[in-house]
């Protein structure tokens, strides 16, 4: 948007939101709203046709995003945002499919869908907002809760090994993997913009503060303290080995863009394989050229 087009009366982001649903339910100090703004900026800058962007969410605090943005959106059942996104992409390969969901939804409940979508290299962008617990249901231990952190189902501290999501994504076959914290505003925007222009399974993890549950149970202060703390503890290492990205409680966070490679997507592989086997009988599916 050009500066001259900005209206005096209302925020420019309102074009992007369903204003009848605002104010949203997120707690004061939660970072999800910031990530939504970054996503909106990235969409604006990427100049995609917004009628050809679909956004999907599962359940959870971040799962509300699909209801708040004014794009074609689906709010799916818990953990099943990725299978629905896969189906959507295959039914209409023209769409740019974005999954906006939380860590509990993508890595916890829907963990199996995540690794299989990555394995097939579906052309989907995933923005995973990681707040280290299942926030909406009351702060239970999630697949990403660091060891020793306190949660409502671990009153003496967590003793389970957590997932390192970038490592999981790369090992499963993702073609774009990045991790940022919510305060890296411009970098998140740029990363999303870059991933929107890419074909293949892209995964962006954004670490955000959870004030009401994670911060309160661990006595880490309010949202501002946590936002600042995550930013200060983060260290940008582009292209770092994803095996080194474990998050420890109160430890260092390595952020950056770790993987960016080209690989044929699911549809490319299908067309190539079936074209080879069936010959002229086969008509390639989902191949669009400019101007079609």
């Amino acid at each position: 948007m050009k500066e001259e087009d900005r209206l005096q009366e209302r925020p420019p982001i309102e074009d992007f939101l369903r204003m009848d649903r605002i104010p949203h339910i997120w707690c004061p100090g939660c970072g999800i709203g910031t990530v939504v703004t970054s996503f909106a900026e990235a969409l604006k800058k990427s100049e995609l046709d917004l009628d050809k962007v679909a956004i999907l969410s599962g359940i959870g605090c971040t799962g509300r995003v699909a209801g708040y943005v004014k794009l074609d959106s689906i709010h799916t059942t818990h953990g099943r945002a990725l299978p629905v996104a896969t189906g959507l992409k295959l039914a209409n390969p023209e769409l740019k499919v974005v999954v906006f969901s939380g860590d509990g939804d993508i890595a916890g409940i829907g963990g199996n869908h995540f690794i299989h979508a990555a394995r097939r290299n579906m052309d989907i962008l995933i923005i995973c907002v990681n707040n280290f617990n299942y926030a909406m249901t009351g702060g239970q231990v999630a697949a990403t809760t660091p060891i020793d952190a306190n949660a409502s189902t671990a009153p003496y501290g967590n003793f389970e090994y957590p997932f390192s999501l970038p490592y999981l994504a790369e090992a499963s076959g993702a073609t774009y993997v990045a991790r940022w914290t919510a305060l890296h505003l411009r970098r998140v925007t740029k990363s999303i913009q870059e991933a929107l222009g890419k074909r293949g399974f892209s995964f962006i993890e954004v670490i955000t503060p959870c004030v009401t549950l994670y911060a309160r149970r661990n006595r880490l202060g309010d949202g501002l303290n946590l936002l600042k703390y995550y930013y200060e503890k983060s260290e940008i290492q582009h292209g770092a080995d994803t095996r080194t990205l474990d998050i420890s409680y109160q430890g260092k966070l390595i952020v950056g863009k770790f993987v960016d490679k080209e690989k044929p997507t699911f549809l490319d592989c299908m067309n190539e394989h079936l074209g080879k086997v069936l010959g002229d009988k086969y008509q390639p599916y989902g191949v669009y050229h400019d101007g079609d």
Binding site: E3, E4, R6, L7, Q8, R10, P11, P12, I13, E14, L17, I22, P23, H24, W26, G29, C30, G31, I32, G33, T34, T37, S38, E41, L183, L185, R186, T189
Partner: peptide, 14 residues
């Protein structure tokens, strides 16, 4: 401020 605001309640014009 516009980008960081989680409530979409602040914005800047030129």
């Amino acid at each position: 401020c516009e980008t960081i605001c989680p409530e979409f309640s602040i914005y800047v014009t030129l």
